[in-house]
Design a protein around this nucleic acid. Structure first.
Length: 105
DNA sequence: CCGATGACCAAAC
DNA sequence: TGTTTGGCCATCG
C-alpha cells in the first residue's frame, strides 16, 4: 500500500467476480498503464492482500505456474475451480470462457 | 540509500 | 509473419 498505483491495481482486481479471471495486461490497461503488467504481478506478490483475490489474476495464456513462489502448486487452481473457473487439459485457465470483461460488473 | 530484478505485455524491426 | 527489445512500479539484496 505504499503507492497509489498499487492501490489502483487492488481496486481493479477486487472488482473481478468469482468464476472469472483477469490477465495482468488487462488489469494494467484498466489502471491506465498498458505496459505496467509486470508491476501488477509484483504488487500481488508483495501485497498478498486477503481482500484482493490474486488467484483470479493470471498471465496472458492463463498460466499460473509463475505463482508457485507465492501459491503452492495446485492451490490457485483449486481456488479457481471452486469458484467455477474451467481449466483446459493443459492445465491453463480457459480464457475463452472465464475471461472477465471490464464492462460487466 | 541505490541497483537490480520481477506473477508480463505490446510495439517495433 | 516471427523474434527481439523496451518499459512500467514496487520489492528484494
Amino acid at each position: 500500500m505504499s503507492g497509489q498505483v498499487f492501490r489502483v491495481f487492488c481496486d481493479i482486481v477486487r472488482r473481478v467476480p468469482a468464476g472469472k479471471v483477469a490477465t495482468y495486461g488487462q488489469v494494467a490497461r484498466l489502471a491506465g498503464m498498458p505496459r505496467c503488467a509486470r508491476t501488477v504481478g509484483c504488487a500481488m506478490a508483495g501485497c498478498q492482500d486477503p481482500a484482493v483475490p490474486c488467484h483470479r489474476v493470471v498471465d496472458r495464456f492463463g498460466g499460473t505456474k509463475a505463482c508457485f513462489d507465492t501459491f503452492a502448486p495446485g492451490t490457485q487452481r483449486a481456488l479457481l475451480e471452486a469458484e467455477g473457473v474451467t481449466f483446459r487439459p493443459d492445465g491453463t485457465v480457459d480464457l475463452e470462457t472465464c475471461l472477465w470483461s471490464p464492462f460487466e460488473r
